[in-house]
Simulated assay, not measured.
Amino acid sequence: MVSVQNKLNGKIQELVNLRLNKGVSPVELAANIYNDEYSEIKLKRKFGKIVCNVFFYDQELFGENKVKYEYVYTYNEDLFLEEIQQKKGKQTTVTWNRKKEEEVLVRDIAISINEIESKDDVQLILNTFPKDLKKLIQSFIFDEIMVI
């Protein structure tokens, strides 16, 4: 069985990786235009964000028809990938969102911290986080306590 400390360390490492990794860059996406499957790639600024639309065709899962897909990659001003949306026909699906990924990890960290009995140990762990994350984790810890 995985110990609370190991589980906590794993989630913290995932959170660190998420915060440090910018994701696929717009330049890397634009380079895909040389691949035969890709038909169009657009880059634009929109309300302080960079948006990259990637269009390609793929075979239907159980058919012979080729289906046109559009993926929309949205970046912040520091070029961190914030969200990926898939558009197929008129249907749009969010396939990845940085804030939601971070929220899930923070919630998992808070749940693991709640399993630690020593309040001193909890405070030591919380003090290792930047202020913004510490507040988020504490809010989730408080929410977990309120649910019980």
Rank of each mutant, 00 (worst) to 15 (best):
V2K: 11
Q59V: 08
Y34R: 14
Q13H: 09
E60C: 03
I116R: 05
E117F: 06
L79E: 05
F140T: 06
I113K: 01
D36N: 14
V24H: 01
N17I: 07
K100E: 15
F47T: 06
N65Y: 09
Q138A: 08
K135T: 11
V51N: 03
T74S: 08
E82W: 00
F129M: 09
E101Q: 14
E101P: 03
S3G: 12
Y38K: 02
F55S: 11
T74Y: 00
Y73D: 02
S112I: 01
Y75S: 03
F62D: 06
E40G: 04
I125Y: 04
E115N: 12
L124W: 07
Y69H: 12
E144Y: 15
N97L: 12
Y57Q: 14
F62K: 09
R107D: 14
Q86G: 07
P26K: 05
Y73S: 00
D121G: 00
I84H: 04
L81P: 03
A30R: 12
G63E: 04
L124D: 13
D143I: 08
N17K: 13
Y73P: 01
L20Y: 10
L124E: 11
I141M: 15
K44R: 14
Y34N: 13
Y69S: 02
I145C: 05
E40D: 13
Y71S: 05
G10E: 15
Q138E: 15
V122A: 03
E70Q: 15
W96G: 07
E102H: 05
F62N: 11
A31L: 10
A31K: 13
A30D: 08
F140K: 14
L81A: 05
L15G: 07
A30K: 13
L8A: 04
L43K: 12
V94E: 09
P130C: 00
K66E: 13
F80S: 00
L124V: 07
D78G: 03
F55I: 02
I148W: 10
I84Q: 04
K66T: 10
V72D: 01
L61P: 02
Q91G: 00
T128F: 03
E82S: 00
I145M: 11
P130F: 04
S39C: 06
L79H: 08
R19Q: 13
V147E: 15
V16D: 07
P130T: 06
E101H: 11
S118T: 02
V4Q: 07
N6C: 03
R107V: 12
E37V: 07
I41E: 06
K49C: 02
Y57W: 10
Y71I: 02
I109P: 05
P130V: 09
Q123H: 08
L124N: 09
V4K: 11
K68Y: 04
K66A: 10
C52Y: 02
L43E: 12
Q123P: 01
K22Y: 09
K87C: 07
E117Y: 06
I41N: 08
K88R: 11
L20M: 11
K90D: 15
D36F: 13
D58H: 06
E115W: 00
T93H: 09
F62I: 05
P130H: 05
F55M: 06
E117P: 04
I12C: 08
V122L: 01
Y73T: 01
N6M: 12
M146Y: 15
V104Y: 14
T92G: 00
F56W: 09
R45P: 05
K99P: 02
E103I: 04
I137M: 03
L136Y: 07
I12V: 12
L133A: 02
G23K: 03
S25C: 04
